[in-house]
Design a protein around this nucleic acid. Structure first.
Length: 286
DNA sequence: CCTAGAACCTGCGAGC
DNA sequence: TGCTCGCAGGTTCTAG
């Protein structure tokens, strides 16, 4: 389940293993993995061939590789189960291999997009003057971005008629946060996921942002140590951060602060994990 | 315009 | 054994 830390680890892997290589050819093995490229697989392959990849970028959970001298970039989203792998040519195809990119150099490795559930995919888009693919202009900066505006985020919370976890998952307000890190940050901040954002005070918002950053940095520190291999390490399901989780997936287990059994609630087609004692439900919630 | 909820997709494990 | 069903969840679409 790649969220910001996992995606950033992938970006570093691309920086090391793919940047500055020239594409020889592209093979699309599953059309759904390229559905966001409206012009189709042939167009995608043709526009990449012969071009050099630039330095990879990231915003929130989106990654991109600039296609040098074209004003465009390959945009990648891993969805739920997507992986970008750098593999030797002779490595057998993965069961869910969707896209293969070969390069012109003699390095003997290729880039593979592998995705079981096909929520993710690759596509090609024009970039804005600051290098951002145009289709993700609506994605907010992430909380680790030095230009993230804490005050603007706070004001946005006050304007919204919504609840805090919904806001944390709204990529147009703050990017990179998914279900796992939202639950973790809320547990650390002792805030119930259904608390309305309207009532948030500035100190409360800033404290929560601090916890979001802490949990992401902790995950990044762990994940960042394991990409020193041939793989662009992205397997969101490998769970290298699992041992450090305080809330997510801990239904019935004692809260690490107060020992009260943690609870899970069905919420927005997914789950929210919380401590019923540390994270009191707001009165207005049903 | 805004917010809430469903749909998309596939593998796995639990329960029968 | 083999079936059904719930669950995983980021993004996008639709309904209200």
């Amino acid at each position: 389940m790649p969220e910001l830390p996992e995606v950033e680890v992938v970006r570093r892997g691309l920086d090391r293993w793919v940047a500055h290589r020239t594409v020889a050819d592209v093979e699309v093995l599953h059309p759904r993995a390229i559905r966001r490229h409206l012009a189709g697989p042939e167009d995608f392959a043709q526009r990449l061939g012969g071009h050099r990849m630039g330095d990879p970028g990231r915003r929130g959970k989106y990654l991109w590789l600039p296609v040098e001298d074209t004003g465009a970039a390959v945009l990648a989203h891993l969805g739920m189960s997507g992986q970008l792998l750098v593999q030797p040519h002779e490595a057998p195809d993965e069961k869910h291999l969707r896209i293969r990119v070969r390069f012109t150099d003699a390095l003997d490795t290729e880039l593979r997009f592998v995705d079981q559930r096909t929520f993710g995919g690759l596509s090609l888009h024009d970039t804005t003057p600051d290098g951002l693919p145009d289709v993700i202009e609506h994605i907010a900066r992430d909380p680790l971005d030095p230009l993230f505006d804490d005050e603007a985020f706070h004001q946005a919370l006050r304007r919204k008629r919504t609840t805090i976890k919904r806001a944390l998952l709204d990529q147009s307000l703050i990017s990179g946060v998914g279900n796992i890190y939202a639950d973790e940050a809320l547990w650390r901040a002792r805030i119930h996921y259904e608390r309305p954002t309207v009532g948030f005070t500035r100190p409360r918002t800033f404290e929560l942002l601090g916890h979001v950053r802490d949990v992401m940095n902790a995950a990044l520190a762990v994940g960042g140590t394991s990409f020193d291999s041939l793989y662009v390490n992205v397997n969101g399901e490998s769970g290298y951060f699992d041992r450090s989780l305080d809330a997510y997936g801990r239904e019935g287990l004692p809260c690490r602060r107060c020992a009260t059994p943690m609870r899970r609630r069905a919420w927005m087609n997914r789950s929210s994990y919380f401590c019923p004692r540390c994270q009191r439900a707001p009165r207005t919630s049903s």
